[in-house]
Amino acid sequence: MLFNPTTKVRLLAVGAVAIVAAACDNDSSVPATPATPPQPTATFEVTVTNLTNAQPLSPVAVIAHQAGYSVFDIGSPATEGLEMLAEGGDNSALIAAASGNADVIATASGAAPIGPAGSETIFFAVLESELPGLNLSTSTMLVNTNDAITGVNGFDIAELAVGESVSLRSIAYDAGTEANTEAAADIPGPAGGGEGFNAARDDLADRVAMHSGVVSQEDGKPTSDLTGQHRFDNPIAAFRIARIN
């Protein structure tokens, strides 16, 4: 199992602390010696829905950030964190690297893989003072592939008002880190049960581009262990982003 179903939803500590502070703010009693004034927070929820036929999505990485950060750029090599997510469905290294980036405001993770037709709602919070320029990125692997990912890549949510939401649909990208063998030994999802992350980079080119889809044995790739059930077309997932306070 290359992705960890026990991963907990994580709120960046500063966000969690700020929520507690905001709750105290509702208390009518006035403390005798006020501590640092509570800073108002903005809480968002991201509902991810899997639109595919037979491509479970690995636990979703959610990253709120400023313009200086991106999960990937078309034409540039994937980071090692993204490679680990794209090949094995493990988002932990991507989230850890993001958390250490000065342009990243908050991170969160989905709790479990999202099966076809399934959905999950993930929460994160930022300080209101961090809203200007705030972008949202999400990333998840199509686990019955070699290294296909999908997600929102830098969507501006700074102007989203409380109670407002926006709905997006995402397309499939190829991380460019692993050849699309479609062989069970190279596919970590239930269709393969094979290897996840491997540091070797042996794709057509070592850079992120759009995914051209899986071919499958039934559509004429004799060495593929995938079936027509595993083929997909865009869009892959729906994302509903709402600001809830």
């Binding site: 499939a172 759009m210 995914h211 051209s212 889809g213 071919v215 004429g220 790739k221 077309d233």
Partner: peptide
């Protein structure tokens, strides 16, 4: 495309030359 570099119906490679929109 197909998986036959020297025959088959197509000169293109089904694992290389396909695409999904948008382009």
């Amino acid at each position: 495309g197909d998986s036959n570099a020297t025959g088959g119906p197509s000169d293109l490679d089904s694992s290389v030359h396909r695409w999904l929109n948008p382009v």
